[in-house]
Write a protein that binds this DNA or RNA. Structure first.
Lengths: 345, 345
DNA sequence: TTGTAGGCGTTATCAC
DNA sequence: GTGATAACGCCTACAA
């Protein structure tokens, strides 16, 4: 109706010959205003194209209904799932979502944590960068009692809220499965070991070896950044190992599929010559040939859980003092890429 | 240093026995402030743990330095790339990014467009939902002169800024390539045809058929939602076609790979029995066996371009009146999945 | 049921 | 170079 001028409650007040406070109350459905008055207010708001100013309200209320989210990368299938889960919960509860990507750098993470603080986010969800070595850039959140939840990539020995899976157990299960299939020389290809998720998967791998009396050979653990290039390189390195390993446990599906392709191109048979297991149950694990044994990793559910927990902290429904760790269930999914002993018909 | 109380410029002013306005100027590096004073101000700010309040500034400045982004889904590899590109540019220019996902529903899209307006975003980037049939929920942006850029999925006949690729040409190239490989009975599996991207790819497909004197058979065009399930179903349907098609052009890589897997499971040889081409050059197209012929689709670059264009509009560096369309280059990438005529040695 | 007045934290304008 | 003061738009005691 109106053109460009921004309409405020004062304009509505003048138009209706009422006080701004009455307009404010009416728009909030405050029962103190007469239904007739309220109706007039809404009609005028509609007619004049009124939009309320979130900033003014935030300034006044000292609340922003905005949650910050810092992730290492946006262009990752797994991260997308977490974000989707977070977004669903936040929007359902009327919160906005402010996103930054640290590009796996602690320095960016710290910078964005500060920026989010300036934006007065009501809470923050973080998936740590690969090289983050301290959480001191989050101390100000604690000091100001702004709730903080870490999801997936966390620090073990801290006093923060976290949503994780049991990576060690998952690593243990997948390695034990490989051993049960008769594999003895199992390579583990993993990411930055200063991050809990990779460190623990490796711990599970080592534990499984030990429990099955297989001597650990440090040369069989390859630490890379799990990018496409690094995976191709790692595959070449594995092909050159003497004697050739009979299994490969990779810390993520995409990298596992890339390795598998390299092995197939080199004429190897999967799983006959080498069994391959991944991690995350990404779609690529299902479309590869053979399909890849993996761990179902509930990314979206982790996002939802983290968001729910954060909201309940923000709204004071959970006590701030009690930090807690939520461990979601992960599950081994056995597929053809590791089935050396074909199930009997 | 300090504990929980939020520090404002008034606190700094009192502490330093200066006026709040001087503090404000000092913090903004206003040259009118004496260097010695400024130094004292920064020292006190640091010591007292001052953080400026973005909302108060926004309220005052009538600017938010926040850009809204509405996408159909967050958990999509292609969308992630666009978002990553947008985020890079926005952060580089000091803007925040507020994200919502429409879940492919026009109703959500409209709702979030309104919410972003309430949040006074300085501009908005949109990737349309599958079922969006009108742009009237964006009219208010035009009315208030809030810049708007559509990326990838757009309306053709509108008067808005857009960043796209030439989908028709890409569809034409890929279909012509299949024809040159000797294919005559080419199935086209696509998404919601009311969206420009799918509509145009199909137009390119039809044009190529016509230019090569191949009669169009409407039964060979399958419109689905391109989900994992729909793709599996479509593959089954194609397998039942009589006579069997000799090529399949799918509007996205993931769906193409899923179909390929189904065909291989049914004993078909790729590309011998049926050639397969995808779209987007996602990583799955490179790890499938055989690798998939596709169109390189610069998602991240589209995101960057959209963000750059939006920022230049927001900052008044481009005129608002001139809406424009930026068409990025896409490129046919030929791989084994369509090479029926092996290149001569 | 409605109105008045003050404040949320910052910046801009005008004085001094 | 610094200070006083009035906005920005909304919300909420408190008063009427």
């Amino acid at each position: 109706m109106n053109n460009n001028k921004i309409v405020t409650i004062y304009d509505l007040a003048k138009h209706l010959d009422l006080a701004p406070s009455t307009i404010s109350r009416g728009l909030q459905n405050n029962p103190a205003v007469h239904p007739r008055t309220r109706k007039k207010i809404f009609a005028a708001a509609e007619e004049m194209g009124y939009r309320f100013n979130t900033f003014a309200r935030n300034l006044r209320k000292q609340r922003t209904y905005t949650i910050g989210v810092i992730v290492p990368r946006l262009n990752s299938y797994f991260i997308s799932g977490i974000l989707a889960g977070i977004e669903l919960e936040l929007n359902a509860s009327g919160y906005n979502m402010l996103i930054s990507q640290s590009l796996e750098l602690e320095s960016n993470e710290a910078k964005y944590a500060q920026a989010m603080l300036n934006n007065r986010v009501d809470g923050l969800i973080v998936n740590l960068a690969a090289n983050t070595s301290s959480l001191k850039h989050f101390e100000e959140y604690t000091r100001h009692h702004i709730p903080l939840v870490f999801v997936d990539r966390v620090f073990e020995d801290d006093d923060f809220n976290k949503v994780v899976i049991n990576n060690k157990q998952a690593g243990y299960e997948i390695t034990s499965h490989l051993i049960k299939q008769g594999c003895r020389r199992i390579v583990h290809l993993t990411g930055n070991l200063s991050r809990n998720v990779y460190q623990e998967r490796k711990a599970g791998y080592l534990q499984a070896l030990q429990d099955h009396d297989i001597r650990n050979n440090p040369e069989l653990v390859l630490e890379t950044d799990l990018t496409e290039e690094a995976s191709i390189e790692a595959a070449a390195q594995i092909l050159k190992m003497e004697p050739r390993p009979d299994a490969l446990f990779v810390a993520n599906d995409l990298s596992a599929v890339i390795c598998m392709k390299a092995f197939k191109d080199a004429g190897l048979n999967i799983p006959g010559d080498i069994a391959i297991a991944g991690f995350n149950n990404e779609i690529v694990s299902r479309i590869s040939d053979p399909m890849i044994t993996t761990i179902n990793y509930p990314g979206e559910e982790m996002g939802r859980t983290a968001a729910r927990q954060l909201i309940s902290l923000v709204e004071g429904k959970s006590p701030h003092e009690l930090t807690n760790t939520i461990i979601l269930k992960s599950k081994l999914i056995v597929r053809a890429s590791t089935l050396k002993n074909k199930p009997k018909p």
